[in-house]
């Protein structure tokens, strides 16, 4: 259980260690602080977007232990002890991840507001299912709303990454 601090106004803060994109950050947060707000406001990781704050749009998708989660539905205190990946943690040393490249190559980005969430939802899918069917791709991103693309090129971009890697033995292509 995280240590609880009390300020002069008798407000309580929980001292938590968040593992974000491989780094551990120590933060004092209120019990009701949402992960999305802590990421954006305290850690300046504004690549995680807010679109509805009700878990409907998927703009605030982050990975928690590899699973896509709406960070507006998660308390920051709940995220302690888990590995959090935001869009800022997808590329390494200025080298884009294959899925990010694929989004650019397939013109899957328009306004870009849903893009971080889409890429993370796509990453999560491809990690546990490297060769998904089109239906599986559509299902995997069905919790992420996009108003610009009709999803056409987003689906294409995710499938293109799957096609670039050879199916493993015994796996259905």
């Amino acid at each position: 259980m995280a240590e609880v601090l009390t300020d002069s106004g008798q407000r309580k803060y929980h001292l938590i260690n968040l593992n974000v994109n491989g780094d551990t950050r120590t933060l004092a947060v209120k019990a009701n602080a949402l992960l999305v707000n802590v990421l954006r406001d305290q850690l300046d990781l504004t690549g995680t977007k807010k679109g509805c704050e009700l878990g409907d749009c998927g703009s605030c998708t982050v990975l928690i232990d590899g699973k896509p989660v709406n960070s507006c539905l998660v308390l920051a205190v709940e995220a302690e002890g888990h590995e959090i990946t935001t869009i800022e943690g997808v590329s390494h040393n200025d080298k884009l991840d294959g899925l990010q490249e694929s989004f650019l190559e397939n013109a899957a980005v328009q306004c870009g507001y849903c893009t971080p969430g889409m890429i993370l939802a796509g990453k999560a899918l491809l990690t546990h299912n490297p060769h998904p069917s089109e239906k599986e791709v559509r299902e995997a991103i069905s919790g992420n709303l996009c108003r610009c693309t009709g999803y056409v090129n987003i689906v294409k971009a995710i499938l293109a990454v799957a096609e670039k890697t050879a199916p493993e033995e015994g796996e259905q292509a």
């Binding site: 990781l45 504004t46 690549g47 995680t48 935001t86 869009i87 800022e88 997808v90 590329s91 884009l96 990010q100 989004f103 650019l104 190559e105 013109a107 980005v109 870009g112 893009t115 971080p116 890429i119």
Partner: peptide, 12 residues
């Protein structure tokens, strides 16, 4: 490719 593409896919 979009001139703003990289900024958008990296969250920058």
């Amino acid at each position: 490719k979009r001139i703003d593409g990289k900024a958008k896919v990296t969250g920058q």
